Lab assay of single mutants.
Amino acid sequence: SEEELIEKAEKLRKEFEFIWNGIRFIIRENADEIRRFEELLKE
Rank of each mutant, 00 (worst) to 15 (best):
N30M: 15
E29V: 14
K42T: 08
R28Q: 10
G22K: 14
E2Q: 08
N21K: 03
L5V: 05
R13N: 05
K11L: 08
L5T: 05
N30S: 14
I6N: 04
L40I: 09
D32V: 10
S1K: 09
I19M: 04
E10H: 04
E17W: 13
R13C: 15
W20P: 00
I23V: 04
D32A: 08
I23A: 00
D32W: 03
S1W: 13
I6S: 08
I6T: 07
F18E: 06
R36K: 08
E15Y: 15
K42E: 03
I19A: 01
R28G: 12
F25W: 12
A9W: 13
F37L: 09
A9F: 08
K8G: 08
S1Q: 08
F18N: 05
E7A: 12
F25V: 13
E29Y: 13
K11R: 10
K8R: 06
W20H: 00
R28T: 12
K11P: 07
F25N: 14
R35S: 04
S1R: 10
I23Q: 01
R35T: 02
E43G: 12
L12C: 15
I34V: 01
F37E: 01
K42Q: 12
R24F: 12
E3D: 09
I26D: 01
E29L: 14
F25I: 12
R13A: 12
R13I: 13
A9S: 07
E2L: 11
E10D: 11
A9H: 08
E38C: 15
E10A: 04
L5F: 08
E7G: 06
N21D: 09
G22F: 15
K8F: 10
N30E: 04
E38F: 14
E38M: 13
R28S: 13
E29S: 10
E39N: 02
S1P: 09
E33Q: 12
L41N: 01
S1V: 08
E29F: 14
I19R: 00
I34N: 01
N21M: 12
I34S: 02
E4I: 11
S1H: 06
I27T: 04
E17L: 06
E43C: 15
E17H: 03
I26F: 08
E29I: 14
I23M: 01
R36W: 13
F25E: 14
I19N: 01
I19P: 00
E3W: 10
F25D: 14
R28V: 10
E7S: 12
E3A: 09
L12G: 03
E7Y: 02
L5N: 06
S1L: 07
N21F: 14
E10R: 08
L5M: 03
E17K: 01
F37P: 02
E4G: 12
E33H: 10
L40N: 02
A9Q: 06
R24N: 08
L5C: 11
F16I: 08
I34K: 02
E29T: 12
K14T: 11
N30H: 13
I34M: 05
I26K: 00
I23Y: 00
D32Q: 08
E10P: 08
F25A: 15
I26S: 00
I19W: 03
K8W: 13
E33K: 11
L40V: 03
L12A: 06
E43K: 07
E4M: 09
D32S: 07
N30F: 15
L12M: 04
R13F: 13
E43M: 07
K11G: 11
E38Q: 09
E43D: 09
K42D: 11
L41W: 12
L12P: 05
E3V: 06
L12H: 05
E10Q: 05
E4S: 10
E39H: 03
L40H: 04
E38T: 12
E38Y: 14
N30C: 15
K11Q: 09
S1Y: 10
I34Q: 02
E38G: 11
L12S: 06
E2A: 09
D32C: 15
K14A: 09
E17A: 04
D32Y: 05
E3S: 12
I34F: 04
I23G: 02
E15C: 15
E17M: 04
R24V: 11
A31Y: 12
R13S: 10
I23K: 01
R36Y: 11
F37I: 03
K42V: 03
L40Y: 05
K42N: 06
K11W: 03
R36L: 10
L41D: 02
E2I: 13
E29G: 15
L40W: 10
K42Y: 13
I19H: 05
A31S: 05
A9C: 15
E4D: 07
K14L: 09
E2T: 11
I27Q: 02
R35Q: 05
E39M: 01
L5H: 02
R36C: 14
A9D: 06
E7W: 00
R24G: 07
K8V: 09
L41T: 01
A9T: 10
E10G: 08
R13W: 14
I23C: 13
D32N: 10
E4Q: 08
A9L: 14
E38P: 05
A9R: 04
N21I: 14
E10F: 01
F25G: 12
E7Q: 07
E2H: 09
D32E: 05
E38N: 06
F16H: 00
E38W: 11
R35K: 10
F37D: 01
E29R: 05
R28P: 10
E3K: 11
K11C: 14
F37Y: 03
I19C: 12
E33A: 13
W20D: 00
L41M: 07
E2M: 11
I27R: 00
R13V: 11
E4C: 15
E4N: 08
A31T: 07
I34D: 02
E38L: 15
E29M: 14
E38I: 15
E7P: 06
I26C: 14
A31K: 03
I6L: 12
E17V: 02
I26T: 00
I6C: 14
E3F: 06
E4H: 05
A9V: 11
K8S: 03
I23F: 01
E10S: 06
I27P: 08
F37A: 01
E33S: 11
R36E: 03
F37V: 05
F25R: 14
E4K: 05
E15W: 15
R24L: 11
W20L: 09
E39F: 05
L12Q: 06
E4A: 09
G22T: 15
E2S: 14
I26L: 07
K11F: 06
W20C: 14
I26P: 04
N21R: 06
I34C: 13
F18K: 04
R36V: 03
I34T: 02
F37H: 01
A31P: 04
K11S: 07
K11I: 07
I23L: 11
F16N: 01
F16T: 00
I27A: 02
N30I: 15
I23D: 03
E39G: 01
R28A: 13
K42R: 09
E10M: 02
E10W: 07
K14F: 13
R24E: 06
I27W: 09
F16K: 00
R36P: 01
E2R: 11
R24P: 00
I19G: 00
E15T: 15
F18A: 05
E29Q: 08
L5K: 04
W20V: 09
L40G: 02
D32P: 07
I27S: 06
K8I: 14
F16Q: 00
L12K: 05
S1A: 09
N30Q: 06
R36F: 12
G22H: 13
G22Q: 13
A31E: 05
I26R: 00
L5P: 04
R24Q: 09
R28C: 15
R35G: 05
F25C: 15
E15P: 02
E29P: 02
E4W: 04
A9E: 09
R36M: 05
K42H: 12
K42W: 13
E7K: 04
E39L: 04
E17R: 02
K11D: 05
R35L: 08
I6G: 03
F18W: 13
E38V: 14
E3R: 08
E43W: 10
N30W: 15
F16S: 00
I23P: 03
F18P: 00
E15R: 10
E4F: 07
L40P: 01
I27E: 04
W20A: 01
E10L: 01
R35H: 04
I26Y: 01
I26E: 02
R36T: 04
R28L: 13
A31M: 12
A31N: 06
F18Y: 05
E15Q: 10
R36H: 07
I27M: 06
K8N: 10
R35A: 08
E15N: 07
A31R: 07
F16D: 00
F25H: 13
R36I: 12
F18S: 02
G22E: 14
E33L: 15
D32L: 12
I34R: 01
L41Y: 04
E17Y: 04
F16E: 00
E4V: 07
E10C: 14
E10K: 09
E4T: 08
E4Y: 03
W20Y: 02
E43Q: 07
R24K: 06
F18M: 06
D32I: 11
L40M: 06
I19F: 12
E39K: 09
G22S: 13
E39D: 05
R13M: 09
E15D: 06
E38A: 13
K42C: 14
G22N: 11
K11Y: 04
